[in-house]
Write a protein that binds this DNA or RNA. Structure first.
Length: 160
DNA sequence: GGCTTTTTTCCTGTTT
DNA sequence: CAAACAGGAAAAAAGC
């Protein structure tokens, strides 16, 4: 099942990565799927459309986005180009600064992960702001830009 | 089960 | 103006 990544045809179609057009339409009827059977639904949709070759990615991304915490989810998304869809983007890889390129899409993906279709970036960002207190994230005074803090781990390029 | 931590929800105000 | 940012408060969910 993890080999769903192997249809490597290049397909630079970005329509599914459009924040407004993505999963809400495909999952408009909010059926609840059994725990992990459809776990890669979001990912494969992303894969089909963004179609980035599997070899590009670090081995890290293999356990695709099962992380229970929000910051880990964000981190893993950042680390796995094939499911990222350009939702997140490194601003400064060394310093762990990244930017949320498609806020709405990120919220949808997180909501999908938590089986919560009411998730919004507004609410997601509130959770991110709580991380400032715990040192998981640090403040960057640019809109949609965050930085991993001292208590975040597993994001550093050389420490993978 | 209770307690703690994390996330969600909601809100009101501010800033970009 | 719309979208982000800011946090307080409270409740729900998740972990232990």
């Amino acid at each position: 099942m993890l080999d769903s990544v192997t249809h490597s045809t290049f397909l630079p179609n970005a329509s599914f990565c459009d924040p407004l057009m993505s999963w809400s339409d495909l999952f408009s009827n909010e059926e609840y799927y059994p725990a992990f059977e459809h776990q890669t639904d979001a990912d494969s949709n992303c894969l089909k459309t963004s179609g980035i070759k599997s070899q590009d990615c670090h081995s890290h991304s293999r356990t695709s986005l099962q992380s229970s915490h929000l910051w880990e989810f964000v981190r893993d998304l950042l680390l796995s180009p094939e499911e990222n869809c350009g939702i997140l983007e490194w601003e400064d890889r060394e310093q762990g600064i990244f930017r949320v390129v498609k806020s709405e899409a990120l919220a949808k993906m997180w909501g999908q992960r938590k089986k919560n279709d009411r998730m919004t970036y507004e609410k997601l960002s509130r959770a991110l702001r709580y991380y400032y207190k715990t040192g998981i994230l640090e403040r960057v005074d640019r809109r949609l830009v965050y930085k991993f803090g001292k208590n975040a781990h597993g994001w550093q390029e050389d420490k993978l």
